[in-house]
Amino acid sequence: MLVNNTDRPARLHYMANGFRVLTPGDHVVCGVTGVRIPLDQLRYWDVLRQQPFATAQAASEAMAPR
């Protein structure tokens, strides 16, 4: 049986130099903005929080000391 991963969120495990797909999908959702990020465009994430970010600015905002 073929599984279509279009329009399904992926579940990932974020590591220092990459990520591992735990559940197949075509995108993840930014932890700050809620924007959908196609997996081939995912560049920013937080390993400790296991959270993806759409842009460097969103990542900086999330990781800024409070």
Rank of each mutant, 00 (worst) to 15 (best):
M1G: 15
M1P: 07
M1I: 06
M1E: 12
M1Y: 10
L2I: 11
L2P: 15
V3W: 08
V3K: 12
V3F: 14
N4A: 13
N5D: 12
T6F: 01
D7V: 01
R8K: 15
R8A: 03
R8P: 00
A10F: 05
A10I: 00
R11H: 14
L12C: 15
H13K: 11
Y14T: 01
Y14N: 00
Y14E: 00
Y14W: 05
M15F: 03
M15P: 00
A16M: 13
N17W: 01
N17P: 00
G18M: 01
G18V: 03
R20T: 14
L22W: 02
T23A: 12
P24T: 10
H27G: 00
V28E: 10
V28P: 06
G31T: 04
V32N: 04
T33D: 02
T33V: 01
T33E: 07
G34T: 07
G34P: 09
V35S: 12
V35H: 11
V35D: 15
V35K: 12
V35W: 02
R36S: 11
I37M: 13
I37R: 11
L39Q: 06
L39C: 09
R43K: 10
Y44S: 06
W45V: 05
W45M: 06
V47K: 03
L48A: 15
R49S: 05
Q51H: 05
F53G: 06
A54M: 05
A54Y: 12
T55R: 02
T55E: 00
T55Q: 09
A56I: 08
S60R: 15
S60L: 10
S60M: 15
S60V: 12
A62L: 04
M63V: 09
M63K: 11
P65V: 12
